[in-house]
């Protein structure tokens, strides 16, 4: 059903079905991220290099508590990769889209604000699917052999972590200037990656970091994925901590997000 070519006759004035609008937006968002060289570097290339480097290299002493290095490190690197897609990439993209009026324009189309948010979350999950497949493949090559139950539980953990970090991304992107979002999103990722209990578990961090990191979303997320993939079960406390962050950050983002 299209109009006669080149003729602005009034149409049926109906929106496309809701699912089609949201899926179109999700594909659009994912393509934008995967086409951007910097984003691919941060979201895919660096995590894969980190995994290979940490597993193969002996320059970092890691107490793996009896597991092989690849089994011990892969869950943390997966958590880090998910954080780049759901937090850093999403915050930067949304911050600049907000400044450029993209959020407002799309909110006036049949997509609406709700559809735009749903599309963004699905877009993030699509990018994460690419990350998980590539990182998983690299880990398998390095000797990783996760159990099926562990993988299923880890996917639950990934969804929970995505909720918490996407909410944080929207809170930052919806309240600060685009340039400030860019700086903060990168800085926060670096700080959480090094001292937030993602790759190196909170209880192996020095002194005060150990106490703090397990209560951070990053530390809880790392522990959830390690619990799922190393022990085949979801650890209760980190799951509750991560869920609390998701709810709290979601409420803050809903309250303070500004479209203008």
């Amino acid at each position: 059903m299209t109009a006669p070519a080149g003729h602005p006759a009034p149409g049926r004035h109906a929106a496309a079905p809701g699912a089609r609008r949201v899926l179109a937006q999700a594909g659009f968002e994912a393509r934008m991220i995967l086409r951007n060289g910097e984003q691919v570097l941060v979201a895919v290339v660096i995590p894969v290099l980190a995994l290979v480097g940490l597993v193969q290299g002996t320059f970092v002493e890691i107490d793996t508590a009896g597991s092989s290095r690849v089994d011990f490190l892969t869950p943390g690197v997966l958590a880090l990769a998910v954080m780049t897609a759901s937090f850093t990439s999403q915050a930067i993209a949304t911050g600049f889209d907000r400044r450029n009026g993209v959020l407002r324009l799309l909110a006036t189309t049949p997509l609406g604000r709700g559809g735009l948010l749903a599309g963004k979350v699905l877009g993030v999950l699509a990018v994460e699917a690419v990350q998980v497949l590539l990182l998983g493949a690299a880990a398998v090559v390095l000797g990783w052999r996760p159990g099926v139950a562990g993988v299923v539980l880890a996917l639950v953990g990934v969804v929970l972590g995505t909720a918490a970090f996407t909410a944080l991304a929207l809170l930052v992107a919806g309240t600060l200037r685009a340039e400030a979002v860019l700086a903060l999103a990168n800085l926060l990722l670096l700080v959480l990656a090094l001292g937030g209990g993602v790759i190196v578990p909170a209880d192996r961090l020095p002194g005060p970091f150990a106490a703090l990191a397990s209560w951070l979303p990053s530390g809880a997320f790392g522990d959830v994925l390690r619990g799922a993939l190393l022990d085949g079960s979801l650890p209760l406390l980190p799951v509750l901590v991560l869920a609390a962050w998701a709810v709290g950050l979601g409420a803050l983002a809903a309250r303070f997000f500004r479209w203008h």
């Binding site: 299209t2 109009a3 149409g11 929106a15 609008r21 049949p110």
Partner: peptide, 17 residues
């Protein structure tokens, strides 16, 4: 992309031209 939000959009080839 924006055309996909509508059930009955303007033909985008014609509009682009």
């Amino acid at each position: 992309h924006v055309a996909r939000m509508y059930a009955d959009p303007w033909d985008t080839d014609a509009l682009a031209e």
